[in-house]
Amino acid sequence: MRTSLINSLLFTLMLFLIPLQLQAKDMVVKAPPESLGKYYPPESKEPKWIQQMHKMSGNLGGVFVNLREKDWDNLDKNADQFVESYKEASEMVPEWEEYFDLKAAKEFAAAAKTHDGEKIGKAVGAVGKTCGKCHADNSISVWTRFHWPSFHKIKITDPIEEKELDFGKYMGLLSGTFKGVTVNFKEGQYDRSQKALRAFKSRFMELKSTCSKCHTTDDVKLFYVGENVAQAFDGLQKELTAEKPNPGNFWKNVGILGKQGCKNCHLTHRSYAMIQERWEEK
């Protein structure tokens, strides 16, 4: 009975924290406040803001874990530390001061110390709302600004021209070279298509080096530019040098490159890169 009450409380807490982010149907992703920059590298040696969030959420979650386990000593400690870490967070970013409600945090801690699940459940609502509101307004922008790599800062040396290009320009070049392969094939100009394929392969494989600047494990590289992609390139080459190229095989391999190489990467990275680009434009 008591366990189910606590589980309901946890569920309620999650309801407060997560779905609030979904309330706003028309979302504006504003760049985060300047002052937040000092809590992230390179200004800070460590990502202090996210560490503070973990600390706070650890204390808050700790109260409910301790409640479930009837570990009252630790529950009291977590309740006090929650107020402390909540207060610390409220003082870190002046632009966000109004998101915080210290009174609600203190009332939650006081309720927590009664060790009464019902009272705790009621009290967490008010303070949980403050977390949820801030997350709903700012999570995406903070993650985009501080946790995703900045594509616009990446430079790539084009393996064909051996000139250093911005990431966006390079992608445009890559896409243009790819079209050189497919358009010429459609027109039956296989020699030209083959020449374009050579350049496209070289430019495509160059991304292995670029991606490895962030993706240090081989798994990611193998996923985007691994065996399947290498086989697709071989397949395209085979068709283009055949006496009578088979369009079915050609387009099947184009599809593999498009899905495995382009689409998967774009699905993961493009939205964030687009937001970053828009901020940069300002």
Binding site: P159, I160, R198, S202, M205, E206, K208, S209, S212, K221
Partner: peptide, 11 residues
């Protein structure tokens, strides 16, 4: 023709 022999490209 050109080849790039580089550890990050497994070549």
């Amino acid at each position: 023709f050109k080849e790039i022999l580089a550890p990050q490209q497994d070549t």
